[in-house]
Write a protein that binds this DNA or RNA. Structure first.
Length: 584
DNA sequence: TGCGGCTATTG
DNA sequence: CACAATAGCCGCAG
């Protein structure tokens, strides 16, 4: 293959069944049929490692399932969700926003009714006369001639170029609200560009996490599940019998004939009332407080635990999400939710700790775990530019110097710092909050500014430029004096979002660096958990991988943090284990 | 069938 | 027991 000199950017549209359209540095472009696409794109990646520009995660999945793992990319939809905020954002909205059209007027496919005629014109190109993308293309139903696919790839390249302009200019082409610059928010243009790239890399990482899955010891998992709910049922009748047996262990503590539905909180409350236990709700921590009042309470707590393993993390969960290759798989989203954290389905982010022994390295391999320590207060120090708090990050346990400065115990200092970031107003931390205001005025001012702006319904931006929409957010139940409480809720939400969101951006920068450094070897990231990475690696490489993960953390810190008189330090706890449950 | 409320788990 | 998320079941409205 002849590469015409150095290659920078390659816009690509690629589907297994159709083939790939490739436009190198805005040139003429070419089309490769389905049979040859993988080899051609793989060769380009090996020889040039260009920045691939594509519309959305679908293309990342096509890359990964064809065995190509792009080092650098630009995902138009991911960058759009960064700039505009929220989670709505297919190619139609992304294109409209990038070229300055009203995103709300982007065409959508209307449900067919008796009088409408489906637009099935196979010759229709992706672009409409009014400048919007045709809805069918935006939704992935490409009507593919090679010319149309080349056009589709070129449009992705054009959208990316416009997005780079938007990021350079200061982020906002928002026609309704105008510039939403909030005084204390946001890094500079270079930082927004860094964020756009690492958000894009995270799209590729998500496609890989979906493809590779998490190494899973099915036997160990079934052993753990059986400890809670017994052996695997042999059939529907057996399952019903076991269910009744579990229920009976609770109901047997009651007068004969009791037949309450334990799955209904209201019935559980009335059940408890009958034995003289009055509770406002039946949450576990509240039941724990009245455990000694009657034997049925303990039985109920135990029943809840078993019920959790029966319904959510039981045999059906294993059957549905663990492949024949012994990998646990879910769907991954690079920046879901308000602040842009990664999310995953299939319980990958909320698996009960008891199941961690089932996350086990394969033969000849180990897991390298790396936990970021106290990531949110460190991020707060960086984005607020608070020199005193930055000084505290030099300690391995930054709550220790904070406690010294506030003249309180470590636990109180921790509660106060967390409370400031979550918007707590009561509890033990609240007392120390005033001392926090005096000692770390810059950081507290940053949080308060976010709180006030959010209370007023103003959109926020994270340090990386992610828009946090506040209009319409958290407009919960109406009622007497509810507006005050809703404003307070918005304030807490905004206070937290600027920290949690920036922390998510930092995490993804770190993960993207690790991903690229691991690529040449046999090690792969197999789980991301907000502040924790798990890498699956051949045993012989474990020490090298562990060192590399730490190097990448320092590199991420240097690249990510705004220039400041006092450097912010990041720390990680790294261990090499066979099972996730093990402490290094 | 869809949706809010309740409950549980995780960071 | 603040902030975020996924997920299951119940009870109710349409």
């Amino acid at each position: 293959m002849s590469a015409p000199g150095p290659v920078g950017e390659v816009a690509v549209a690629w589907r297994h069944d159709l083939g790939a359209a490739i436009v190198i540095d805005g040139g003429d472009g070419r089309f490769v049929d389905a049979a040859g696409a993988g080899a051609t794109i793989g060769e380009l990646e090996r020889t040039c490692a260009p920045r691939w520009v594509w519309w959305s995660q679908d293309t990342a999945r096509t890359f990964v399932s064809a065995g190509v793992r792009p080092a650098r990319c630009w995902d138009v939809c991911a960058v759009h969700r960064l700039i505009e905020g929220g989670t709505r954002g297919g190619p139609g909205r992304a294109w409209a926003h990038a070229v300055g059209l009203d995103p709300d007027s982007a065409p959508r496919v209307e449900p067919l009714d008796l009088f409408s005629v489906a637009d099935t014109d196979d010759r229709a190109g992706p672009l409409r006369a009014d400048g919007h993308l045709r809805a069918e293309w935006a939704q992935g139903a490409w009507a593919a001639t090679s010319d149309a696919m080349l056009e589709w790839a070129r449009l992705a390249g054009a959208a990316a170029a416009r997005q780079r302009d938007l990021l350079a200019r200061g982020a906002t082409g928002d026609p309704e609200t105008g510039p939403v610059r909030w005084a204390a928010a946001g890094g500079d243009a270079a930082h927004r560009l860094l964020t756009a790239r690492s958000e894009s890399a995270t799209v590729a990482l998500c496609a890989e996490l979906e493809h590779d899955g998490l190494p899973f010891d099915r036997g160990a998992a079934e052993g753990i599940v059986s400890g809670f709910v017994g052996d695997r049922p042999t059939g529907p009748d057996d399952e019903r019998a076991r269910l009744a047996e579990l229920d009976r262990r609770v109901l047997d503590h009651l007068p004969a004939g009791a037949d309450d539905d334990l799955r209904s909180p209201e019935r559980v409350r009335s059940l408890l009332r009958r034995v003289g236990v009055e509770v406002p709700d039946t949450r576990a921590w509240r039941l724990e407080q009245v455990r000694d009042a009657h034997p049925v309470v303990g039985a109920l707590i135990e029943w809840r635990r078993a019920e959790r393993f029966r319904t959510t993390f039981g045999y059906p969960w294993i059957d549905d999400h663990v492949g024949v290759d012994g990998r646990l798989r879910g769907r991954w989203a690079p920046a879901d939710g308000a602040a842009g954290r990664m999310t995953a389905t299939a319980g990958l982010h909320n698996m009960p700790a008891e199941l961690r022994p089932a996350i086990a390295a394969e033969a000849g391999h180990v897991l390298v775990r790396a936990d970021l320590g106290q990531i949110e207060p460190r991020i707060l120090a960086a984005v607020s530019g608070d020199a005193a708090l930055a000084e505290a990050t030099h300690a391995l346990d930054m709550y220790a110097p904070v406690a010294d400065r506030l003249r309180v115990g470590r636990e109180v200092a921790k509660l106060a710092v967390l409370g400031a970031m979550y918007g707590a107003t009561t509890g033990r931390g609240a007392e120390a909050l005033r001392a926090l205001e005096r000692s770390y005025a810059v950081a507290m001012g940053h949080l308060r500014a976010a709180d006030v702006a959010a209370q007023g319904g103003n959109d926020l931006r994270t340090h990386g430029g992610r828009r946090i929409p506040m209009s319409g957010a958290l407009d919960g139940s109406a009622g007497d004096g509810a507006e005050r409480s809703r404003a307070a809720a918005r304030g807490r939400y905004g206070r937290n979002a600027v920290v949690q969101g920036a922390a998510a951006e930092f995490f993804k920068t770190w993960a993207a660096l690790v991903r690229n450094r691991l690529a040449p070897g046999g090690a792969r990231i197999v789980l991301c958990l907000h502040d924790e990475l798990i890498v699956h690696t051949p045993r012989d490489d474990a020490d090298v991988v562990a060192g590399l993960v730490v190097e990448c953390l320092h590199e991420a810190g240097r690249r990510w943090c705004p220039p400041a008189p006092v450097e912010v330090r990041f720390v990680a706890d790294v261990s090499v284990v066979d099972r996730w449950s093990e402490v290094g």
